[in-house]
């Protein structure tokens, strides 16, 4: 057993002849905010799904929260929180009902759910809208509710798949403040995004392209090494270079 929150080796996922994820390896330290970047279709979501036990890898392996991703997906599920890009809440239920339901799905009892809801409601400032049907809420609020749902069971690692899609800049900034707090408390955060300003908030990033990791490091080191003006420029140059090389 080692101390890495996530450690994977040569992880692959093939759909027929299409290699959605092609032998990627990476490690994420505990309490780290790890950014997983890439264009749409680069394989980020597929990789996250394998880590969360939603997809069976075609090859390679690794561990999440100290448990084998091939054999111990049930144990992994107890220790991780997952928030998908769709903010998977039930639109016809209120925020509180959603939290009650997901709490029960994570095996919490009534008391625990009540206490955690109260705690998260204060922390994420949900009080104002927690008793309204989720459907009627603006995207930014739905996002915070979805985050609350994925934090109910106090996960050690939080997987966020494009958590800020469609959310306005003010809400995004608030959201990242919350992520920072969580990381300070020791929660490991594994986040995919294609907002480059968000990538700059991460302690380390990996860039995926066509199923492979083509770049990794600390955001500011990378900018310096490649003499780029910012991450966005670096990212675009890199992808363009790859595409020209492929063509």
């Amino acid at each position: 057993m080692n101390n890495h929150a996530v450690e994977i080796n040569d992880l692959s996922c093939h759909f027929g002849s299409f290699k959605a994820v092609d032998r990627i390896s990476l490690t994420v330290e505990q309490g780290e905010i790890f950014g997983f970047l890439g264009a749409n279709g680069a394989g980020k979501t597929t990789a996250i799904r394998m880590l969360c036990g939603l997809l069976i890898p075609s090859g390679g392996g690794g561990q999440v929260a100290g448990f084998d991703i091939l054999k111990q997906s049930e144990e992994i599920k107890k220790n991780i929180g997952y928030m998908s890009q769709k903010f998977s809440l039930y639109p016809d239920l209120t925020g509180r009902e959603n939290l009650n339901f997901y709490g029960a799905a994570y095996g919490l009892d009534k008391k625990q759910i009540l206490a955690r809801t109260e705690e998260l409601s204060n922390r994420l400032q949900l009080a104002e809208f927690i008793d309204r049907p989720t459907l009627s809420l603006p995207v930014g609020w739905r996002q915070r509710l979805a985050l609350a749902a994925s934090l109910l069971h106090k996960p050690k690692i939080l997987f966020l798949d494009e958590p800020t899609g469609g959310v306005d800049p003010v809400f995004r900034r608030k959201f990242w403040q919350i992520l920072y707090q969580l990381a300070e408390e020791g929660v490991t955060i594994f986040v995919t995004t294609h907002y480059m300003d968000e990538a700059a908030y991460c302690q380390r990033i990996s860039v995926m392209h066509r199923g492979q990791i083509i770049l990794r490091g600390k955001p500011y080191d990378l900018i310096e090494q490649h003499r780029a003006a910012n991450l966005e420029e670096l990212f675009i140059d890199l992808i363009r270079g790859r595409e020209n090389a492929d063509a």
Binding site: G53, E74, Y82, S88, P91, A105, G107
Partner: peptide, 13 residues
């Protein structure tokens, strides 16, 4: 369709 099945399957249920 709404993605809640995916969410549920990441829970230990």
């Amino acid at each position: 369709e709404t993605g809640t099945m995916e969410q549920l399957l990441t829970a230990p249920v």
